[in-house]
Simulated scan of single mutants.
Amino acid sequence: MAAKRRKTQIPPPPKKETGAGKEIQVNPPPPQEEIVVTIDPRSLECSICFEPLCHPIYQCILGHVACRLCWKKIENKCSTCKKPIGGQNIALEAVLESMRLPCPNANLGCCKSLSYSQMQLHKDRCEFTQSVCPIPGCAHEAFSGQWLAHFVKDHWNHGYDYSDSSHQNYGTPCTIRFDFKDFEEDRYYTFLGPGKDVFLLVKEAIPNGTALTLYYIDLPDLGRNYIECELRVQGGPSLSSSLQSESQVVSIQEWKRGEVHGSSLLLPSQFLLDGYMMVNVVLHKEKR
């Protein structure tokens, strides 16, 4: 790690006048000092999940650090030395918070500079982040805020529109019928919300059943809203069986084909005994 010091000059404050017309020169504060360093990003990663460290940061009694969620996963015992957790590393948290980094999309027009701990969240929401359409076989690329037109034009064979003015808070159920032929391949259903909100309901086969997951593709105001999805499925003989879930809508970036996570609704194979099933989808959007 290379480091050098530099001083940031602060211009002296303007002179002040007293009631008698005399000027008083106020001594300027000493120059602020900054340390410019070059750090290997790997040294700022969690030693367990290898994701960037973020507040709060905990360490074992020998000083090995990891993020809070990972400490819980390993029952508060260090994965490196097996020693117990020693406490919170406040100094490292302060260092990470004081680091200011330019957005990786600066060359595309983003002018924001953020702390290290805020950078990952910003990258997921930056309007200058360009990504590839998640629909298999589609190579279209777009920035945040541009996906609405693409999905309406190219992927509206299975679509549901929440963007009517009477549905500003969502809450209106949509019912989808899955027939036997729908289970022979993965299916994708587009949901449009107010503004430029775009969601994708993914149905894909997993061992011994099916997984249903709702992802968001574009949520320009995600930081000011909380999006929740209710999934209720009826299937089996004469639709006699039902399953339901309530979960927060997650980013399409978390979709890995063939894998499931906490927001997925898992359906056993017996839901197909009558050759079809009914899926009820309700979206809720709440201000934070």
Rank of each mutant, 00 (worst) to 15 (best):
219 L>F: 10
237 P>K: 09
254 E>T: 09
242 S>G: 04
269 S>F: 14
287 K>S: 15
231 L>Y: 00
225 N>G: 02
233 V>M: 01
283 L>F: 10
224 R>Y: 13
230 E>F: 00
244 Q>W: 08
235 G>D: 03
241 S>T: 05
273 L>S: 13
284 H>W: 10
253 Q>Y: 13
258 G>E: 00
287 K>L: 13
239 L>E: 07
246 E>V: 08
282 V>H: 05
229 C>F: 08
276 Y>N: 12
229 C>A: 13
237 P>C: 02
266 L>K: 08
222 L>C: 11
248 Q>F: 13
222 L>A: 15
239 L>F: 09
239 L>N: 08
272 L>K: 11
220 P>F: 05
252 I>R: 01
219 L>A: 13
265 L>H: 06
240 S>R: 07
234 Q>P: 01
260 V>D: 01
233 V>F: 04
259 E>K: 11
239 L>A: 06
276 Y>D: 10
286 E>S: 14
243 L>K: 07
264 S>I: 10
231 L>M: 09
220 P>D: 04
261 H>E: 03
265 L>A: 09
231 L>V: 05
251 S>G: 14
254 E>A: 07
257 R>M: 02
282 V>W: 03
257 R>K: 12
235 G>L: 04
287 K>F: 10
266 L>H: 06
260 V>Y: 05
225 N>E: 13
220 P>L: 07
231 L>T: 06
260 V>Q: 04
223 G>N: 11
271 F>D: 07
277 M>H: 03
230 E>A: 04
257 R>S: 06
265 L>D: 06
254 E>I: 04
259 E>Y: 09
273 L>I: 07
246 E>F: 10
250 V>P: 05
254 E>D: 08
271 F>V: 05
272 L>F: 05
285 K>L: 11
247 S>G: 04
249 V>E: 12
237 P>M: 00
262 G>Y: 05
231 L>N: 00
263 S>T: 09
283 L>R: 03
225 N>F: 12
265 L>Y: 07
256 K>P: 00
285 K>P: 04
279 V>W: 02
275 G>V: 06
235 G>N: 05
